[in-house]
């Protein structure tokens, strides 16, 4: 009896074990090492095990570092909201208005920019938004402006570059959610006298919230961790936290400080997850 129970338990575990080992080896162990590293210091060119929270208190004592975190949050939130506003209608058009036989083509076209490296894409945007880029040239040639606009090397440029990328991601997650919805929901709402707008607001939108939130969370996480796009398109006129982390490593090999800043960034991401999960009650599904 006991032998059978043990065997059943082992059968359950053996399917989980590879994934568990993978997670422990490539997430838990590095994460613990990073936490430990964040408590150490680089002194006299060497990393010394000092075991204190100085790297964290140092962060909160320096307003320009706090501003880097706030910049990261502001940019990521702006990108998430703008991308959502653009991606939802796009996903809806592809799912509901494009004939079924063309939907695959439409999706491929929508995700086509994914096939390019995001560094190349960022430099391409730089050429579009630069003083002598397509946008300024058009506006100058048509007489709409007399002086070129300073779009490149600004937060606007960073947000534009990010939005271009993440609209595709959100379109995919929302489209998948829309396609799973039975058309009977809309029909039932119409039978009960609801117009198209009311049906969307009270039926379709709530039912597609999981897709929206998964996409929004992914957008926020990927955006807040990126330092390449802000560097290329933002012109380093303001720094986001990942740029500051890279400076600690690249300029001073200060891994302990970089680890502490990374943990703080992870805490923001965790908070974002908690907000998403609680709102959607993901833990109950």
């Amino acid at each position: 009896m006991n032998h059978t129970r043990l065997e059943t338990r082992w059968q359950r575990w053996r399917f989980v074990l590879p994934a568990l080992l993978w997670t422990v080896a490539f997430f838990v162990v590095p994460f613990v090492f990073m936490v430990v590293m964040s408590l150490w210091h680089r002194i006299g060119g060497k990393i010394v095990a000092t075991w204190n929270l100085d790297n964290y208190s140092n962060f909160f004592a320096k307003p320009h570092l706090i501003k880097a975190l706030l910049n990261s949050i502001e940019i990521s939130l702006s990108v998430t909201v703008i991308s959502l506003l653009l991606a939802y209608p796009l996903a809806w058009i592809i799912a509901e208005r494009v004939p079924v036989r063309w939907q695959r083509t439409a999706l491929i076209l929508a995700v086509l920019p994914f096939w390019t490296s995001y560094v190349v894409r960022s430099y391409a945007w730089l050429l579009v938004l630069a003083k002598q880029g397509i946008v300024n040239t058009f506006l100058l040639d048509t007489g709409i402006i007399v002086e070129p606009l300073a779009i490149a090397s600004s937060r606007y440029a960073t947000v534009i570059g990010f939005v271009h990328f993440f609209v595709m991601l959100l379109t995919l997650t929302i489209y998948a959610n829309l396609k799973q919805l039975s058309p009977n929901y809309a029909r039932a709402a119409a039978d009960l006298g609801a117009g198209p707008w009311r049906t969307f607001w009270h039926v379709i939108l709530p039912l597609t919230l999981p897709g929206i939130m998964v996409g929004a969370f992914l957008t926020f996480v990927l955006c807040i961790g990126d330092y390449i796009t802000p560097k290329i398109l933002g012109g380093s006129n303001e720094l986001v936290l990942p740029q500051v982390i890279m400076l600690q490593i690249g300029r001073r090999a200060d891994f302990p400080n970089a680890a502490a800043l990374s943990i703080l960034l992870m805490m923001v991401v965790t908070l974002a997850y908690v907000v998403c999960a609680r709102w959607l009650k993901m833990e109950r599904t």
């Binding site: 050429l127 003083k131 300073a150 012109g235 380093s236 006129n237």
Partner: peptide, 19 residues
């Protein structure tokens, strides 16, 4: 007075493209 802060590659790009 500064439009952007640049590394080696971005410095060349900024000056060469007239940015």
């Amino acid at each position: 007075n500064t439009a952007q802060f640049t590394d080696v590659v971005a410095s060349q790009t900024a000056l060469a493209t007239g940015e």
